[in-house]
Design a protein around this nucleic acid. Structure first.
Lengths: 255, 255
DNA sequence: AGTTTTGATTTCACATTATGAAAGATTCAG
DNA sequence: CTGAATCTTTCATAATGTGAAATCAAAACT
């Protein structure tokens, strides 16, 4: 049977109904009865009852001693998970935007996933010729500025294991493909507090990257500015380091 | 078609599948592909695709530029809603239990909803003859210790309006049914920092109650110990006040 | 305390939805 | 540029979710 008649896309009715019930419960401070839920959800009581029973099984809903319903603990768990991701991007967005405006080039935020960095946020340069990464796309650690810093922070042994796992494939003539060279290079970069990518991932593209730390001192992300190599400037380094510092502080890191 | 074969109760398959997909996304720090979700969820890709599309519509899921999926902002909203309720009960539970152990009588936590208090948490006395309220059940404000404090805190005019709305029905011979008497009584109780229920809700049952404040200074809940009148002791008052103070502090109130 | 009313829960026939196979479109990798 | 892989849409239909009715339980009334 049709619900409200007009469905934007070919949605799944049961999910629509479950979402509606969850939203109703969110409007009340206290647990509410099946009768109210069914009425406000415009559902038959037996339908509401079964949907709620399913949601209870997965801890999205709880039922108290008098049979009233409220939102369940699983939403707290999943919500906390969302917060971590959202907070990083929300804290980063204005800082990334300001840095992009100051330098006039694209600025990216990445997080490490296994042997790659993933682009999770960005501010794109307004210039016609610019570097642009797709959010969600990935790059191997050893060919990116921030990835090299992440490797160095993980230690020499981890560097060797990474080299073994991946074989350090060359992406351009400038890619570092020798493990000893990679270790020397990344260690130095970590000591400097920033790293370069000198056309190592892509010909003619240069980056300056720094690490972002969370309140627990762990690496939360990487921040980098990317530009055509001939436009990249050494004097950007302190600005990138400062932006990284501010973002780390906004996440509660003061090391 | 059947899922894992054995279903504990007559659950709804689509909700089971949606929950499974949400749980898989929670296991990853980064957005993941449809292929991985379908595989780990043991679903046909077209099925996973439609369920995810529905979840996206309700903001339980988001899809990024390269078509990868992550948990959505709605979970943060609903999760925050759960936190408020869970935090109160979680902070209260050990304090309620300690007070019950110290006094040997039932201790209840209530919240105000319109003209009633609702029982949201409790620690029951181990004695054979004891007072026991069902979680989720309610009582009118004017016949409970904490309800009278809530009325007093709301002001004299609100007290008069409450009396008008409800007619101050008698529950026992001891129920206060005169509005001037109620105002005098509840004001004094608020000044004292605690209130009694002298068999006003139920014959022979006596309570001592205090208000619980949140970090914003607002009334978050009421805490009370209930016992047969002949067992209730005046010297419990400072212990109940102290327990209420500690619970308010654990919620961030230091007024 | 007994009766009536209301709300919650279960059952069941079947209408409609959700499904998966197949096809088509898009993206990615070489 | 081509082929492979992944994503998205279509469609026939299997099976699920539905709501009416019945039953059970709790609450309200007398």
């Amino acid at each position: 049977m049709k619900d409200s008649g007009l469905t934007k896309t070919s949605s799944i009715q049961v999910i629509d109904r479950a979402a509606k019930l969850l939203n109703i419960m969110a409007r009340y401070d206290d647990p509410i009865s099946l009768k109210i839920l069914a009425a406000e959800g415009e559902l038959h009581p037996s339908t509401a009852f079964r949907i709620l029973s399913s949601l209870i099984e997965h801890q999205f809903v709880e039922r108290d001693d008098v049979g009233h319903y409220r939102l369940g603990i699983k939403l707290l768990h999943l919500g906390s998970h969302v917060r971590q991701s959202v907070e990083l991007r929300q804290q980063a967005k204005p800082i990334i935007t300001r840095l992009r405006d100051a330098l006039g080039e694209t600025v990216n935020l990445t997080v490490r996933e296994n042997d790659e960095v993933v682009y999770v946020e960005r501010a794109i340069s307004g210039q016609m010729m610019r570097v642009e990464q797709v959010i969600g796309s990935r790059a191997p650690l050893h060919v990116t500025a921030v990835g090299k810093l992440m490797l160095a922070a993980a230690g020499e042994e981890e560097c060797r294991q990474y080299a073994k796992r991946t074989g350090l494939p060359a992406y351009t003539h400038n890619t570092i493909t020798d493990v000893e060279n990679l270790i020397r290079h990344t260690s130095q970069a970590l000591q400097n507090g920033f790293a370069y990518d000198n056309g190592e991932a892509e010909k003619s593209v240069g980056c300056i990257g720094v690490l972002i730390y969370s309140s627990t001192g762990e690496i939360a992300a990487g921040l980098s500015v990317s530009a055509p190599l001939e436009r990249r400037k050494e004097e950007w380094v302190p600005l990138v380091i400062e932006a990284g510092k501010r973002l780390s502080e906004s996440l509660g890191y003061f090391g």
